[in-house]
Amino acid sequence: MAPGARPVLSIRGLRKSFGSVEVLKGIDLDVRARELVFVIGPSGSGKSTLLRCCNRLEEPTDGSILFDGIDVLSPRTDINAVRRRIGMVFQSFNLYPHMTAAGNVMLALRRVLKKGRAEADAIARAALARVGLADKAGSYPGELSGGQQQRVAIARALALEPVAVLFDEPTSALDPELVGSVLQVMRELREAGMTMVVVSHEMGFARAAADRVLFMDQGEIVEEGPPAQIFGAPRHARTRAFIEQIVRH
């Protein structure tokens, strides 16, 4: 599905410092509806921080973020209302260990969207079915494989019908044989037209699914372009060096 013209996420001059260390040095980024933007870059380049600024898990130092027309950084914005419309998937899943898979998905449906038990349960089951885990609704995270846990986490994000989903290295904590199942879910999401920003080093997936790849280094977007260009013919020396290094692994 071709990306729409309307930017869902519009970031301008985004800066973030931790103490005296500037981790994001003026990021400009537009993500259009139904677009899948891939973000790569060396460890410590600020990829996670960029994602976490989008829903203010990290408080930016400067800049502006518009999400679906809402000024995310305005003090008048109800940040919880914004957050429930931006899905977030973490490297370490972060499932609630004391709740079943269905309970994990239902929590925000019940407490944020204030849905009744029956309705929340039905939505949770549908979301779990969507990630291929209809039969695991009653399982606790500890009883699930890493790949299954990450798919529950994706279901938890999807159940709130987000406008966009941010993925922070969704497969890098997984054993290699479990990566495929998570990527499969992400591929289906993309085909369904979900707007996604994905931090990951799964190059095969990026080549097949990404509209655009950004290369970040030292808090800046060094280069961006279609996957074929970034992986095949990078313009900047830093990008080239990084691509060579991950290809070798």
Partner: peptide, 17 residues
């Protein structure tokens, strides 16, 4: 773990929730 807070807050739950 901090990730528990972050996961919950990212779905729109408030601090006390």
């Amino acid at each position: 773990p901090r990730g528990q807070w972050e996961a919950a807050r990212s779905t729109g739950l408030g601090a006390l929730q």
